[in-house]
Design a protein around this nucleic acid. Structure first.
Length: 440
RNA sequence: GCCCCCAUCGUCUAGCGGUAAGGACACCACUCUUUCAAGGUGGUGACAGGGGUUCGACUCCCCUUGGGGGCACCA
């Protein structure tokens, strides 16, 4: 790879053992930019506190990024590994007069003049050096502090772009001053705004789901979360919102178009977007995601024939917003134990006219019992049921809705003929029979 | 307290001196349909306030207000 025009960006999550969506979005922006510029996306773990630096602390981060489809180049760099190098640079600053000893620690001497930079997101930003106190770069135990190590490492790794959260804006003048003292040109800085919760405050654990893993558990597809996160604080300047092809997103991305204002995380829109992705995803790809959800609900996907399982998943794909939704609906169709018992709308509907609904059910039962397995096909079922409604002299809904409730326990489903087809002849008849008896 | 950043529908946003202020989510209505959802159509809904600059400000400047972030021998 050529070394000119070579963009290197880095991502430096704290080893908190949890990947916040804000951090994930920052990583995504880094990644999109690096991929677009055909540079490198480098992962660095900031672990000056070496007690906490370990493989397991980075595992959640690796998993989360990999799940989102963000791959990094080169091995992960651990900040703690550079201890001696950091100490050497600090000593050099001491010799050069850019730093001085204070109570056994080494303090950096801030220049008094203005320190300014042109932020790739925020535009021109400036601080007065005189407003910033001299700060410790080496503690009295000779361990370096964060603001110093990042600079030393950025310089060492020849980082060209630092894309990070806006909470680092006020660290930037300190870091620029160190770059200058070290005789290095500072990288391009890009500060992306924070993500806030519904109450407009920093998105934190009390807002519920904040970790990438939480959304995974909620049944969100990684592609959907990635798409959503990309659009939170950035937009492609045209009216596209759905980027099913990651390359389109990479091509469209630009730091200039990143918002300067914090954005509020809107779960509803994420779910909508997830629904869009769900209906684009072939059943085959969905099954591995839905099956674990079914297991969590207490259903063994292996207990039914694969084609039946696939059908139950597929039929709900376009209606659902999360893979959890799909699992919940599919399981109702595959196992009578999951028929909804407490659906309010369903209860009300029956209560409105119990006699009519049980006689409709009885009539349906009589008529459908007459069909054998080979007749149990969507088309045939539909015509049978329509004819039935006609003979009874009632609107089709009067017949279909009680059946739907008998079979699923809810008032919501695919077309009734499709539903009966998925559930199958024997099971459907059983469920209707059961309902008839229960209401007697 | 000091420093920095920000400010268009409820939310995500377009706008870069002259627009009926556009789109998306959500919401409402209608439509489709046997129901629900999805889909389609339409609708409600915003430039924080005050001063300038200008023939003309959402757009530029200043102030106020509001929000956020930062001021460690944390990262």
């Amino acid at each position: 790879m050529s070394s000119e025009n070579h963009v290197r960006v880095r991502f430096a999550p704290s080893p908190t053992g949890y990947l916040h969506v804000g951090g994930a979005r920052t990583a995504l922006f880094n990644w999109l930019y690096a991929r677009k510029m055909q540079g490198q996306f480098l992962l660095r773990i900031e672990d000056t506190d070496r007690e906490r630096s370990s493989e397991e602390h980075t595992q959640v981060i690796r998993d989360g990024l990999a799940w989102l489809g963000l791959d990094w180049d080169e091995d992960i760099v651990f900040q703690g590994a550079g201890l001696e190098r950091h100490q050497d640079s600090a000593d050099k600053l001491l010799v050069d007069g850019h730093a001085y000893e204070d109570d056994g620690a080494v303090r950096f001497r801030m220049p008094r003049e203005e320190i300014a930079w042109d932020d790739a997101v925020g535009g021109p930003i400036s601080f007065q050096g005189s407003d910033i106190q001299d700060w410790v770069i080496l503690r009295s135990d000779r361990t370096p502090t964060y603001n110093f190590t990042v600079v030393a490492d950025d310089a060492d790794m020849r980082i060209s772009h630092v894309i990070r959260g806006a909470d680092h804006i006020s660290n930037t003048p300190k870091q620029i001053a160190v770059f200058q003292a070290l005789g290095q040109t500072p990288p391009v800085f890009a500060h992306v705004p924070m993500i806030h919760g519904q109450d407009g405050r920093k998105l934190s654990k009390r807002h519920g789901a904040t970790a990438v893993g939480d959304y995974r558990k909620l049944g969100i597809l990684p592609e959907a979360l990635r798409n959503f996160l990309a659009l939170l604080g950035w937009n492609p300047k045209d009216e596209r919102e759905l980027f099913f092809e990651i390359d389109d997103l990479i091509q469209a991305f630009s730091l200039n178009d990143v918002q300067r204002k914090a954005a509020i995380f809107d779960l509803t829109k994420l779910e909508w977007m997830n629904g869009q992705y769900l209906s684009q995803t072939p059943v085959g790809d969905l099954l591995p995601l839905v099956e674990p959800e079914m297991q969590r609900l207490g259903f063994d996907p292996g207990s039914v024939p694969p084609d039946k399982l696939a059908k139950a998943v597929d039929i709900n794909r376009e209606r659902a917003r999360t893979t959890q939704d799909i699992a919940e609906r599919a399981v109702i169709r595959l196992d009578p134990r999951f028929i909804k018992q407490d659906d309010e709308k369903a209860q009300k509907l029956i209560a409105k006219d119990p006699d009519a609904s049980s006689s409709a059910l009885q009539a349906a039962l009589d008529r459908l019992s007459g069909l054998d397995d080979s007749d149990w096909k969507p088309d045939r079922l539909e015509s049978e049921l329509r004819v039935l409604a006609e003979t009874l002299g009632v609107g089709p809904g009067k017949v279909f809705q009680p059946i739907r409730i008998a079979v699923t326990g809810t008032t919501v489903s695919e077309g009734i003929h499709l539903l009966l087809d998925v559930v199958g002849r024997e099971e459907s008849l059983d469920r209707i029979k059961e309902a008839v008896e229960k209401r007697r």
